[in-house]
Design a protein around this nucleic acid. Sequence first.
DNA 1: AATGAATGAGGTTTCATTCAT
DNA 2: TATGAATGAAACCTCATTCAT
Lengths: 197, 197, 197, 197
Amino acid sequence: MIDEEKKTVEKIKKAALEEFYEKGYGKASLRTICRNAGVTTGALYFHYENKEALLKAILEPLIARYESLMAEYMGMELEAPEKGADIDVLMMSFILEHRKEAIIIMEKAQGSCYEGWHKRIEAMMGQAVMTFYRSRVIEEPDKELIRILARTRLDGCLEILKGNYDMEYSLYLTKKLGVYATGGTEKLIKELNEFHG
Amino acid sequence: MIDEEKKTVEKIKKAALEEFYEKGYGKASLRTICRNAGVTTGALYFHYENKEALLKAILEPLIARYESLMAEYMGMELEAPEKGADIDVLMMSFILEHRKEAIIIMEKAQGSCYEGWHKRIEAMMGQAVMTFYRSRVIEEPDKELIRILARTRLDGCLEILKGNYDMEYSLYLTKKLGVYATGGTEKLIKELNEFHG
Amino acid sequence: MIDEEKKTVEKIKKAALEEFYEKGYGKASLRTICRNAGVTTGALYFHYENKEALLKAILEPLIARYESLMAEYMGMELEAPEKGADIDVLMMSFILEHRKEAIIIMEKAQGSCYEGWHKRIEAMMGQAVMTFYRSRVIEEPDKELIRILARTRLDGCLEILKGNYDMEYSLYLTKKLGVYATGGTEKLIKELNEFHG
Amino acid sequence: MIDEEKKTVEKIKKAALEEFYEKGYGKASLRTICRNAGVTTGALYFHYENKEALLKAILEPLIARYESLMAEYMGMELEAPEKGADIDVLMMSFILEHRKEAIIIMEKAQGSCYEGWHKRIEAMMGQAVMTFYRSRVIEEPDKELIRILARTRLDGCLEILKGNYDMEYSLYLTKKLGVYATGGTEKLIKELNEFHG
DNA sequence: AATGAATGAGGTTTCATTCAT
DNA sequence: TATGAATGAAACCTCATTCAT
């Protein structure tokens, strides 16, 4: 009873999350998902139109929050750049509840309709970082450099996610990464302006 | 003649490099590789025992250099930490000649025997960074934090590789990333010591 | 109320008629039928034992009329062969009300228990035509020839059905086809008797 | 040896021809084809890209002849309409060697790229018949009537094909059908012109 | 009378790998 | 060295049908 009360949909989503996380979308096997969920292929296809729909069902809930968060991120950093670290903390506490989903969308979605999502997210972060640099640097900052800076910051966050630490420790790491980023940014800006002068 | 002198093995390796790079080890198709190489499956299997052996043939040459480079990296940064940026430059000029191979081993080897390699490399960099932090920080630095710091630095390099820029620009970006890293490191060390005091 | 009064059975039959007509029995999908009828599979299976029973429910009403019509056809043509055209008209006005059902049974029933029906119908027409030829031709007419003659006449009627013309035009075409058939029959009979003589 | 000398491709084509002929393209099962051919799915897919390519391999040889034949048909009937029957004979002797293929393309190709072929062929015959009628009838003949006339003539030919008679008998039937068609045409033309007068 | 979740066999297709030549 | 035909398991997906509610 206790075990059977768990609805089929939940069993499928759980098994699918694990499979997508481990093998990536392209290599994930629906058969394996069904087997691990203790369900037949027919049951899966009753609930989800196809492989991609299953992935969507798993990621969609995260996405709304993810986007709104990113938008917020862009706004805040512009107004109060020194709060960058705080925002990272905010982001962490949000995402930590959907670790695997976030990792899937950022690194394991190749072949699905989310294939390009990580680039969109990188672009958003890139925009925020660029806006900040523009306000501090005399010459137009190098676009690729900014992109890479944003990307490595994102990678830091992802690395924390992948570590699967508890919330407190994750936030600790996030803050330290924030300090590092601030120091790096300051130094880089100084150097960029010196070269100009 | 000139064209036919290009040995089968070379044609296969070239096509395989492209396929592994584009699709990743797991999703790469030997059929496609053979087709693009203008070679039959039999020929491929005459030269390579299986899919993994083909990947090995492509990556092995890089690996020796990669490891020795990493070892060197560790030694140098310990002795002369301020030369971090220079070492990055050195690394770049090495790896730039094997862009795709490096990216494959770091991000596209899932499912192969190189699946865990990126972790080894991260560990090596982590060691180097840890050694440096230990020499500057009073308390034992947090291991995970160091690991992540090393990892993001690696990601920066990878990002440059992925950009496929020309050597000059790649080195420019590497240097700037070095400046950023130095600034971040300094600030973080200061903070870590302050907290202690 | 007005809309809900339309019984489930009717909705199912309507959707099924369309689906069988478009895709044929074998390729018709019960899912699609249910979806288009706005009904669940359970409801369908409450009323019909299986796919074939559903087809039966759709075709059965037509069949009784069809058979009696054919019987009548045989009798009339024997007594008054010159009325062939009139009978075609009669047949048309009957069948035109069940266009799709007639087409299904004649051309789209493969895989069902009606798979052989079109042959029965062809045989009936063949009998009628044979009876007529026997009364006019000295030697026993070739059975296959008669069968094919009957079949092409049937095809003419079917073609009119498939055209989905209005009644008036359908009857016009039927009449013209009748003229053609009469002319063909006369000429053929003459030739058959000449060869004999 | 005797049995194994029969090449795989031939075994596949033979089994496929039978399966397509019996079940139609859509319902034909590649598994069944492979089983009946004594071959694995892999073998089939080595030789043919997909289901449709297999059908193409079976029909293509017929098609070239079919089209050239139809073109010839159109030209001849225009110049010498009384030779209609002769042409039917010509057509028969051509097609008789590819009975099943012809039937597949005319009646069993739904769902494949040949889905529309039978309409093209009907249109060709319709053109030829229309041209003839135009030259004999005062008023423009009714398009649909002509179409149906052409179609029934085609059906007669198909019926002979489906009968799987020997060549001699097939030609006999074809000739008789030609006589019937001539008689029908004459009578119909007379009537059409009378109505006009 | 009806729901709708679940079944499981079967559909087409792809794949790494083998082997006689 | 190399060919290329063949294997057979596994991929995603659809289907008619069943059954507890």
